[in-house]
Amino acid sequence: MSANAAAEAARPYNYAYLDEQTKRMIRRAILKAIAIPGYQVPFASREMPMPYGWGTGGVQVTASIIGPSDVLKVIDQGSDDTTNAVSIRKFFEKTAGVAVTTATTAASIIQTRHRIPETPLGAGQVLVYQVPIPEPLRFLEPRETETRKMHALAEYGLMHVKLYEDIAKHGRIAKTYDYPVMVGGRYLMDPSPTPKFDNPKMHRSPALQLFGAGREKRIYAVPPHTDVVSLDFDDHPFEVNKFDKPCALCGATDVYLDEVILDDRGGRMFVCSDTDNCETRRADGHRGELLGNEEPRA
């Protein structure tokens, strides 16, 4: 190793890993995306020190907007403590030196894979989604030239054909995640593979929602207070999934639950997918079935 290369290697990364030119390029894409809600803006996605599918798009968006005073929360399937969430959190602690948190209310930037926190987001917060496939029409129309034309002309009948097929086959719209939405009454958008349970949370949210797809090189956005409407039929209106039981740990009823297998004799429980929400409720004195069913005294 030459002396020069050694010096190079010893130098710390640029703030938040990406070089400043790249960040500017990504910020320009983000600004354009905010200006045209729901429109997929192409950007020159960079190689990141993690494989595609691990959130390279979301990481690049976060890296471009994060500053030293930000507080970052990262969730994967609602959980703060899975490998992916922990790695990304550590990545930004190391490269951007930011404070991190698991509390939704304390975060200024929340990067997410597959969930929107149960705690309503507020003005000034930014939710960054990791997106695998940004094009909602992709599996219906394989040609990119054609899907772009369809977006340009707002020709979205085909998406309803997909929903029609669902009802014809299953008697209802069976799609439970990746459920297509119309943004600002104009662009059809894939909300990334979040459960459709979360779709209503996007509608007129006071937070800024940014979407990054690293492999597909697309960024799109839902600015605060934008209409986000899930597609449906007049006689088959959009409905969120309902759960039969409350969370076994905190007793919450209006949240998204994960099924956890307890033993090999069929034992199972349903618990909050949003770990922060669950912990906060338990700290407040809520107890689910497994912990003795209690409610805090008023």
């Binding site: 097929e165 039929f233 006689d235």
Partner: peptide, 27 residues
Amino acid sequence: LRMGISAGGNVGERLMAIGSRHYGEIR
């Protein structure tokens, strides 16, 4: 035709493309 879409979906596509949003009527 869209070979992977049902016959009903194939016929209904044009209707949905021009704004039909009632499953029962389309069918």
